[in-house]
Design a protein around this nucleic acid. Structure first.
Lengths: 198, 198
DNA sequence: GTCTATATCAGGATAGAC
DNA sequence: GTCTATCCTGATATAGAC
């Protein structure tokens, strides 16, 4: 799968971004990583910004894929509460795995978030993606505690996703071991669910 | 205060970093902002890295100053629990204010954290600062709920500070309004304190 | 579609006068 | 201590052959 040159370049770009960051990506290093010439990068993607755009799209699609991979096919709304909670944990802990793909995705999203502080053009996409994520998490929470009013669900989802983003940066910068991060997330989920019970 | 050229340059650097990020800082733009020539930057700080180092130090000192400004002078350990909680809230909400200084500090720290993912040299300082912060927050929590075992305090402090870092990025990138961020933090504090009561 | 070679340019850094 | 003028490297991007 994905063995043509274009995809190979985008996969390479994801690796380079994970290693050097969006702002550390050099066209020549990318060319070497992909095993092609720099000219080919421009032929396929027009310019550096084009590479970035397509890579982030590529990464986002890949993330959607592995997010929905395990654990669906059954309608959530009819599941028992305990299964919903498992599903919630699984979904939130996906961000914290040592697999290269996951690391690349987390790194790239972190970079995107950080870049958006200085590049207003990026904010639209980012805000949309964040909102969608919060919404998904709020949905999962509503399966766990079905009678909760929507605003409380949203607030919990905002805190959980916000925490995930914060811990993700710590993890990637080596300040927080993976299993400790996972433990903190699990506890945060407990804490928020207890909260929903008043 | 701080009217000599060196300080003027560092203040200007803080402003430019808040506007463009650490990686977007250009020596010429900084020179213009500070009202001096580029050569003078090199005369005082040797090179770009020197500017960065001194600016981060400068920012960190300034943050220490406004962190301890209001609300101390009394030994925390003898305060009533309700005051300790106020103090905790105050301390955590300091990060979310619209003052230029605060924005500059938050931005610079966010940049530092993000950069540390790709520049291992930065990790030492960052990890130290983060640990100290977690420790401070854990101390404040122990004033609020004095009988809590240390590990639970630390875990709560890690979640609260992690959440703050996540929300801070969202705020700075325009994805989260200031007062909403503050509200989420206040709720998070409640949630964590309830948790400490079991 | 892909490469080699090169134009172009931005930005960090320095020399030397005052 | 501070400026003007300039050098030089590194990185994006293009021309043109195959």
């Amino acid at each position: 799968m994905a063995t043509d040159r274009r995809s190979a370049i985008l996969e390479a770009a994801a690796r380079v971004i994970a290693r050097r960051g969006v702002r550390g990506l050099r066209m020549e290093e990318l060319a070497t990583e992909a095993g092609v010439s720099t000219a080919l990068l421009y032929y396929h993607f027009k310019d550096r910004a084009g590479i970035l755009r397509h890579t982030l799209e590529f990464i986002s699609d890949r993330a959607d894929r592995y997010t929905s991979e395990a654990g669906d096919g059954a309608g959530r709304s009819t599941e028992a509460p305990s299964d919903a909670r498992t599903e919630l944990e699984r979904s939130l802990l996906l961000e914290f795995q040592d697999a290269p793909e996951v690391r690349e995705n987390s790194t790239a999203w972190g970079e995107l978030r950080a870049s958006a502080i200085f590049e207003p053009e990026l904010r639209g996409d980012l805000a949309r993606a964040t909102l969608a994520w919060i919404h998904d998490v709020a949905d999962l929470l509503s399966c766990v505690r079905p009678m909760t009013p929507a605003p409380a669900l949203t607030a919990s989802a905002e805190r959980l996703t916000g925490l995930l983003e914060g811990l993700s940066t710590r993890w990637l910068s080596g300040a927080l071991p993976l299993d400790h991060a996972r433990e903190l997330v699990r506890e945060a989920i407990s804490v928020e669910i207890e909260r929903l019970d008043h």
